[in-house]
């Protein structure tokens, strides 16, 4: 077992473990924190895959901005004090079973049939800011511009919905 595999396993365990913890913790704030751990683990994976830009953006945008926003909202609502009422156990079991079977179905067929295809680790320059920027502003100019529409509508949305009247 080489070091890469080891790190992979560690990061994966961290991601999955934190994700499970996020599900299990009753307190929303703790859930958020666990999720941030997941994001960190994923950023670790990005770095392993030599996608540094994404790794950084992931931390800044997700772990930094978005999760903090979540945290704010939870704090704002003062939800951490009130514990989430337990859901109908049977329904919960059905949920877990069906989600799990989905996973099993996909995994079993994907693992069975695919031949071994290796992933390039720690090499390749596609993930560097320079290259990405180059592509983004040449080939991807239309989506990039259009994404602004998305943000505009999100902005308007926040105004329309958020503004008290």
């Amino acid at each position: 077992m080489n070091i890469i595999t080891l790190i992979f396993i560690l990061l994966s365990a961290m991601a999955v473990g934190s994700a499970v913890m996020m599900l299990l913790s009753k307190n929303p704030v703790k859930s958020i924190l666990w999720l941030i751990v997941v994001f960190f683990a994923i950023s670790g994976h990005y770095i392993m895959l030599n996608a540094q830009f994404l790794a950084v953006v992931n931390i800044i945008v997700y772990a930094g901005a978005i999760m903090v926003l979540f945290l704010f909202v939870v704090m704002l609502m003062n939800l951490n004090s009130t514990e989430e009422p337990a859901r109908n156990m049977r329904l919960q079991m059905v949920g877990i079973i069906s989600g799990g079977s989905l996973l099993l179905i996909l995994l079993s067929s994907l693992m069975k049939t695919n031949k071994e295809q290796l992933v390039l680790m720690r090499v390749g320059d596609a993930g560097l800011i320079k290259n990405l920027g180059n592509v983004l502003f040449t080939n991807y100019v239309l989506p990039f511009e259009i994404a602004s529409v998305l943000f505009l509508s999100a902005m308007i949305g926040a105004v329309v919905i958020g503004k008290k009247n």
Binding site: V16, A19, V20, M22, L23, P28, L79, E84, P85, R87, Q92, V94, G95, I96, S98, G99, G100, L102, L103
Partner: peptide, 12 residues
């Protein structure tokens, strides 16, 4: 799948 299960099981 954990995400999906979470959607299915959490109420918040």
């Amino acid at each position: 799948s954990i995400g999906i299960i979470g959607v299915l099981t959490r109420r918040n």
